[in-house]
């Protein structure tokens, strides 16, 4: 009876894993299918990927995504790290208030954040484009950077910083030579996470992008609305592969020399 229950549970869990991965695997598989029109497998081909790299619009969207991703995640990482360092020194009451404000964007429906920013940019008469995308991406990724770095800081304890100050280091010296090197893996993980969020974002970008600032997910959306095609599969596959790589590398950095192995969320 006990083993039966265990097997049922394990079978159910594997089934869930299949449910999570099968659609993605099918999408990837069909990006290598020679046939354009239907789901029948007619042979292996790289041609859809080749045609992507020859497509100027795709390359432009890729460039846009990269530029916006790098710039927004650098800003989000700097601001998020600074905030996490400061909040550590706040009293419990103030840090709760501050964290509450910072984490609010995580629990507000994304669509609201997108349209709120659209309203803001149009009120201050900013032209929608790369700049507005960068501003928006910093706003939704900064909280995630803060979560990761705060975790790292909590993990580190106070002893080393106190020792450094006892030895006569100024607060800035302690920050520069003790704290920052210790939380560096967290900073890198935060940066990678912010970059992934930016690269992947569709909903908020959808509201604040202009005609010349199409990012990869926005370009994919345009294609998806026109129907299924092997090019969309190929482009989606590229996005999936880069997201997965980034997330795994970020996880490795976040767990590096850290006692806290809890998966972030």
């Amino acid at each position: 009876m006990k083993t039966l229950r265990r097997n049922a549970l394990s079978g159910y869990s594997w089934l869930m894993l299949v449910f999570l991965y099968l659609p993605i695997l099918i999408l990837v598989l069909y990006s290598f299918n020679d046939s354009r029109i239907n789901a029948t497998w007619t042979g292996f081909t790289w041609k859809w990927y080749v045609s992507l790299f020859e497509n100027r619009q795709v390359m432009q969207a890729l460039m846009n995504s990269m530029t916006i991703g790098v710039i927004s995640s650098v800003i989000a990482t700097v601001l998020g790290t600074a905030a996490a360092l400061a909040v550590k020194h706040y009293s419990i009451r103030w840090s709760n208030i501050f964290n509450g404000l910072m984490y609010l964007p995580i629990v507000i429906p994304e669509i609201m954040m997108g349209l709120a920013m659209l309203v803001l940019f149009s009120q201050v008469q900013m032209e929608l484009g790369k700049v507005t995308l960068i501003l928006a991406h910093v706003t939704f990724s900064m909280p995630y950077v803060m979560v990761i770095i705060s975790g790292r800081l909590a993990d580190m304890g106070k002893e080393l910083e106190e020792a450094s100050q006892d030895l006569g280091a100024t607060p800035w010296e302690t920050l520069r030579y003790v704290t920052l090197p210790l939380i560096m893996p967290g900073i890198i993980a935060g940066f990678l996470m912010a970059f992934t969020l930016s690269l992947d974002d569709f909903i908020i970008s959808f509201f604040v992008a202009g005609p010349n600032s199409t990012t990869l997910p926005l370009y994919i959306y345009g294609l998806v609305k026109r129907g299924v095609s092997p090019e969309v599969n190929a482009l989606s596959t590229l996005l999936i592969v880069s997201t997965v790589l980034l997330v795994v590398v970020a996880e490795i950095f976040r767990r590096k020399d850290s006692k806290n192995n809890q998966s972030i969320f």
Partner: peptide, 26 residues
């Protein structure tokens, strides 16, 4: 990690994956 990875993959792409499977010529 296996449960977390799909969560990071784009919503749009994951919905599209189902279109490939479920559409009439899917």
């Amino acid at each position: 990690l296996l449960v977390m990875i799909p969560f990071w993959i784009n919503f749009l792409v994951r919905s599209y994956a189902w279109v490939i499977i479920l559409r009439s010529q899917g």
